[in-house]
Design a binder for these strands. Structure first.
Lengths: 225, 225
DNA sequence: TCCTAGCCGTGGTCTGGCTCACATCATGGA
DNA sequence: TCCATGATGTGAGCCAGACCACGGCTAGGA
């Protein structure tokens, strides 16, 4: 059951079965329906979460109300660690994009687990380092790539994590509206829509509601960089 | 002497005097002159560095040769940890902006230090978390703010870390050319120059070579957000 | 069943910021 | 001292992409 998902999570990967089961037992459980908010930017809170099932978006809102998505996370991925190690309010709002369930762990419990388990600490460091590297890549993309390029890159990333190949291409049920996709790549909905329409007209992909089918991975990848 | 600088570094902050001295002894030392490169993006390498004296820029180059600066780091700040915990080639090129010296530590030595010293691991986690938070802020700025806003924000950050107040304002010897400042905020040199000229004409600051004097912190801060 | 609210597709306009093209100003080496 | 080289200021033109304004589509609730 859901233990399988958690075992893939970086937090657990270094643990043996027994330790993993024990850690799992000490974690809380939360379930939400699509569109519900787990916590808001600015909230205080010191829980770390792992997605067990479903998808969430991490977003921030600018002073004038516009929104920007930092990431879309799926099963096995962790979030909320920032307020753990860098004390302060939550830096993003987490909203579900599908029905979803989570396992959670408090700061104190995590610290107890870290003690005497250097491999777990090392796993967390890897995780944070990888996130930081990705964040730097996003910055580079915003500076160097145009909107269609960023859209292509986002689709490839989503395909990589949520895609399933079939005869007619890679089906990617990303569960995002074009509005959300636009917020993810830092562009307007209209521009993203035009980029998608252009890709579709070239036969690189087919558009479906909250989903795309990638038919020419090669060309799309080339457009991405 | 330089031990004072290192004691402020996050890597050391949790250590007592004796441990700090021992760690310092196990670290290598490097000195470079302005404009020299410590390592290139894509190099292999597993050393972590701490700036002892001087400043460096972390930059990446796009496929078509344009450059983007991720950060300017000064005394006490750490870099190169990414390739440690997230194995892979160096993700950025590090170049000195002034004459500079560094203390370095290899992956293996660091891991030995982490073992049995959970506080050090925790310090590193804090450091990475803080960097990640900053990277996310940069992303938000690129999406939400215009170039003058980003320039203002960059100046405030530099002032915060390298500024010295005097009667006529905060003197910020950032040691960056306008070209480098432009790469830091993800804009063209010309646009940055015009933004700076505009700030100066409003009396918010005075321009000097590789340096600015901030005269109206209040207005500049307001322009930044 | 209809109606409403949210998505999605697509044109037209306007502008921030990039590129190009110079002129000027330092600064250090011969 | 004089020149070369890089840094700095500034204007002109152009264009990607934001913003605006629709019309059509679809799904879920009354």
């Amino acid at each position: 059951m859901d233990n399988d998902v958690l075992r893939q999570a970086p937090l657990f990967s270094a643990l043996d079965d027994e330790a993993a089961t024990a850690l799992r037992a000490s974690m809380g459980e939360t379930k939400l329906r699509r569109g519900e908010v787990l916590f808001h930017e600015g909230d205080s809170g010191d829980k770390l979460y792992v997605v067990v099932d479903g998808k969430v978006k991490l977003g921030r809102t600018s002073s004038d109300g516009r929104e920007n998505l930092l990431a879309i996370l799926g099963p096995g991925q962790m979030f909320g660690e920032l307020s753990l190690f860098d004390p302060g309010p939550r830096s993003a709002t987490v909203t579900t994009v599908t029905d979803a369930s989570f396992a959670s762990l408090s700061h104190d419990d995590l610290l107890r687990w870290l003690e005497g388990r250097p491999m777990v600490a090392h796993g967390l460091l890897s995780q944070l380092a990888s996130r930081l590297r990705k964040a730097n890549d996003v910055v580079a993309d915003l500076v160097f790539s145009d909107v269609p390029g960023r859209v292509a890159k986002a689709l490839l990333d989503l395909a990589d994590r949520f895609g399933r190949s079939a005869d007619d291409g890679i089906h990617v049920h990303h569960d995002l509206t074009q509005e959300e996709l636009a917020q993810l790549v830092g562009a307007s909905r209209e521009t993203v829509n035009k980029a998608l329409a252009d890709f579709a007209s070239r036969g690189w992909l087919r558009l479906e509601p909250r989903s795309v089918v990638i038919m020419d991975l090669e060309r799309l990848s080339r457009r991405a960089r």
